[in-house]
Design a protein around this nucleic acid. Structure first.
Length: 455
RNA sequence: GGUCGUGUGGCCGAGUGGCUAGGCAGAGGUCUGCAAAACCUUGUACGGUGGUUCGAAUCCACUCACGACCUCCA
């Protein structure tokens, strides 16, 4: 089976053929840590986590780098507002980010380089670009000369003239071309800065990713990813800088995830219509959020609503119920051709540009198979269960039984109810059931025993 | 204005030329003290118009609607 990936650069679905056999280099643009992260971030990093896990499953060894842009206007602004060093602000939100990602079962990148730790490398890169005539200094700022790079626009399919026509940017007439972008920004008063050949200043946005990608992964990498909003200008500029610098292709495959939408609008900080990951995790299990994020193809826009979270909560419950039923099974699993067939269906879905929606459908088919066989042939059901758990793990979804440490009071009511049921005192049993419900515990009687859920 | 993308049944969402997607909700049933779970049955969808083809949700043209990007953004 061949893995196909959609490449933004060629606008085509292509066979995935990495440059160095089984070794894959992947760079995904990280966050600017100036605030807590929202579902849009979660979607992006879940999407690339799934890509990473699937590639690893297929036997590739990944070197995955994701940066932190820890020096930036918004961080500086917040630092000033709180009278703290910019580093403190960045560290705070980096920690928040990592905590969120861990809870969502997103594997950490092999490296998370920070921009502020690589200023010298950035200065060197800018110096070379000036030397090569791809950049020019202007009163302490350094700009990239877009017209000098003949393929400018190849990633985002734009050309310089068209963009200028529709530009909403106030034109800085000092620049040679309005689209020229800053590689180095002169420091303003009270801003963190570093010494450079052009005076005190700091890196512009874009250059850090070029430098860090080349530094940690080499001049040409296999996969470069990020949110679709980064295609222009961020990734376009990265391509220009990097390829001007090295004269090599910067990245072979460009993968971009679609936005999370809310009421048909993009969720973003600037529109102030975002839900933070913490908000959601207070009310929902992280795997419910993760499942929700996998319900459609990663490139497409994903509509967010609490209704959908509820739907995915029920979805997860179905799997947990099945898990519960077989939790005491001791026998050996018996894999059948039906199960193997479904497993292959799963791989086919994933080979088709990581189609997690179709892959989830396969898990449901396995679940149905398991439920059908659970009484007549628990061995087969058990095999289905193991398969479900393993395949779900490729998606980074963990199905686990909830911990059931209930207070003594609840346990004693349960015991009382059990007694009542034994005596067929249904009235009393129902009263006790309602009593539990009042206390926030929902009860379900099953063949194997009693299930109880905290609501 | 330019560029790119999307439009599938009550809702969500796969599907790139013929073959069951799947989930949620609904209806009927089996099971069950009740409930829940599970299973069975049920649902004749592909924005519109034209074209290509033996055959199109799937290809082409036009058209309508919505969105994103062109400014910071995952």
């Amino acid at each position: 089976m061949t893995l196909k990936v959609y490449n933004t650069l060629t606008k085509k679905s292509e066979n995935f053929e990495p440059l160095n056999g089984k070794k894959v280099s992947m760079y995904v643009c990280g966050i600017t840590p100036y605030d807590s992260c929202h579902i849009g971030h979660a979607r992006c990093y879940v999407a690339f986590d799934v890509i990473r896990r699937y590639l690893e499953h297929k036997g590739y060894t990944l070197n995955y780098v994701q940066n932190f842009t820890d020096i930036d206007d918004k961080i500086i602004k917040k630092a000033h507002a709180e009278s703290l060093p910019f580093k403190d602000i960045a560290e705070r939100y980096i920690n928040d980010f990592l905590k969120n990602m861990d809870v969502l079962n997103i594997k950490r990148a092999n490296k998370n380089p920070k921009v502020s730790d690589n200023i010298n490398e950035i200065i060197t890169a800018v110096t070379i670009l000036i030397k090569k005539n791809f950049a020019y200094e202007l009163a302490g700022d350094v700009y990239f000369r877009v017209k000098k790079f003949k393929n400018y626009g190849k990633l985002s399919k734009r050309n310089i003239e068209e963009m200028q026509n529709g530009a909403r940017v106030i034109v800085n007439d000092k620049k040679e071309t309005p689209m020229d972008f800053a590689l180095w920004k002169k420091a303003k008063k009270n801003e963190p800065s570093w010494a450079s050949p052009w005076g005190e200043g700091r890196p512009g946005w874009h250059i850090e990713c070029s430098v860090l990608s080349i530094l940690h992964l080499g001049e040409t990498i296999d996969i470069h990813g990020g949110g679709a909003d980064l295609i222009f200008p961020h990734h376009e500029n990265e391509v220009a800088q990097s390829e001007a610098l090295t004269t090599k292709t910067f990245a072979k495959y460009w993968l971009h995830n679609g936005f999370v939408m809310i009421n048909k609008e993009k969720m973003s900080k600037s529109l102030d219509n975002f839900f933070s990951v913490d908000d959601i995790l207070q009310k929902y299990h992280p795997m419910v959020l993760r499942l929700f994020l996998l319900t459609n193809h990663y490139k497409k826009p994903l509509d967010f609503s609490t209704n959908k979270l509820e739907e995915n909560k029920r979805r997860m419950q179905k799997f947990i119920n099945f898990l519960e039923i077989l939790s005491n099974f001791q026998g050996k699993a018996e894999i059948t051709p039906d199960i193997t067939k479904l497993e292959n269906e799963f791989y086919q879905a994933m080979d088709n540009d990581f189609n997690t929606a179709a892959a989830l459908a396969v898990l449901h088919k396995l679940l149905e198979y398991g439920n059908k066989h659970k009484d007549i042939s628990p061995k087969k059901a058990q095999a289905a269960l193991i398969k479900i758990k393993n395949l779900a793990l490729i998606l980074g979804v963990k199905f686990e039984l909830p911990k059931k440490n209930f207070p003594a009071e609840i346990n004693s009511i349960l015991k009382e109810r059990l007694e009542a049921r034994k005596n067929q005192d249904w009235q009393k049993a129902d009263d006790l059931k309602n009593k539990l419900l009042d206390k926030g515990y929902e009860i379900k009687d099953t063949k194997s025993g009693i299930e109880i859920w905290k609501i």
